[in-house]
Design a protein around this nucleic acid. Structure first.
Lengths: 202, 202
DNA sequence: GTCTATACGCGGATAGAC
DNA sequence: GTCTATCCGCGTATAGAC
């Protein structure tokens, strides 16, 4: 029962729609239309709208953690790995607007159970190696809090950017992943006491 | 026309409801019920739902901008002002969960027109003095980008906190405004090249 | 597994009396 | 300015044929 192909297609379409417009604003009719099936058919694959939302969330998040982990654990100097991680995360939030929005919706709309599940499975698999990396780079800072700050900084930037670009100032870097990434790397490095990109790697 | 009291009551009730449940999930009937008037009466005060949302957003945001501005422009050394601003903003996002959610919803659900309006009116009134302050503190960084980073950092923290507290680590500071504030002040100060809180003020 | 048809309530919005 | 009454479309969900 439940053809895998249709199910996958539904999840792909639903993720994108939800990310774009939010859970409430996307009707089952919308999802069905995007997959070119009848609304009633959705209910063959998912019990109700809530089940579809949860499945869509899981579908998206599980794909992202592995690459991040790889970067953090690579066989390179810690300074390089930190840079690479920041580059990767900025790019992810920059290029994949759907993912960025889903992240926030998860933080905003997710109930505690959902958050706890995400934290212990997906997030910690990135958070733990990042904390470890920071402790290798500086003994003067709290690795956990600093890891949280780095992620917060990037996630925060990805959100405020859409509003800040309207400010009556030229903050062009906010609209270019590479420029923003360079700025954030500098910001974080200085905070860790690593003055410039090339000298930092022991 | 339009009794100011009723209008205010509507805005107060609507802000809270929107923050809690999102724009889509809150019906005009819900708002009306919260104010104990009939749904139709809302349309005497606001043209349609969209106008109500915008007015509610403005209502909340403009009330917060003035104190922030005051802190940034006080007659104190720049280092002290920066610390005070961070303290204040962390507290705001920490204590006022409704405001925190409304911020995110504004970033997430707001259409471009809404964002541009908020950016040029409310946000810039805080952003401009903050940039100015940073340029006084350090000639080595881009004031605009750094201002954006400081705000992003705090906004980001306020959001991820609800998920990060579920991590299998002791990040107690994420749950205490003062501790988080201290960490962020240190993070930012180091990034600006101001080593410790007391020496920084010229 | 996907379709057609349909029940049924909710939500935005307006008309017009008071 | 607030009310009652009402229009009408949209959204979730189910029944049952193919």
């Amino acid at each position: 029962m439940t053809s895998p192909n249709t199910r996958e297609a539904i999840l792909a379409a639903a993720s994108e729609l939800y990310a774009d417009r939010g859970y409430d604003a996307v009707s089952m009719r919308d999802v069905a239309a995007a997959v070119a099936i009848q609304p009633a058919s959705l209910y063959h694959h998912f019990k109700d709208k809530d089940a579809l939302i949860l499945a869509a969330l899981e579908h998206v998040f599980s794909a992202r953690a592995a690459p991040a982990r790889d970067i953090l654990l690579e066989d390179r100097p810690p300074g390089k790995r930190l840079d690479a991680f920041i580059d990767w995360l900025v790019r992810l939030y920059f290029d994949d607007a759907a993912f960025a929005r889903l992240t926030i919706r998860g933080l905003l709309d997710g109930n505690d159970e959902r958050k706890a599940y995400l934290a212990t499975t997906v997030i910690d698999s990135v958070f733990a190696p990042l904390s470890q990396l920071i402790s290798e780079l500086s003994a003067a800072v709290d690795p956990g809090l600093t890891a949280a700050s780095i992620i917060s900084l990037i996630v925060g930037h990805s959100q405020v950017a859409s509003t800040f670009v309207h400010l009556p100032r030229k903050l062009r870097a906010l609209g270019e992943a590479d420029a923003l990434s360079a700025h954030i790397k500098g910001f974080v490095r200085r905070s860790l006491g690593l003055s410039n990109p090339s000298e930092a790697a022991p």
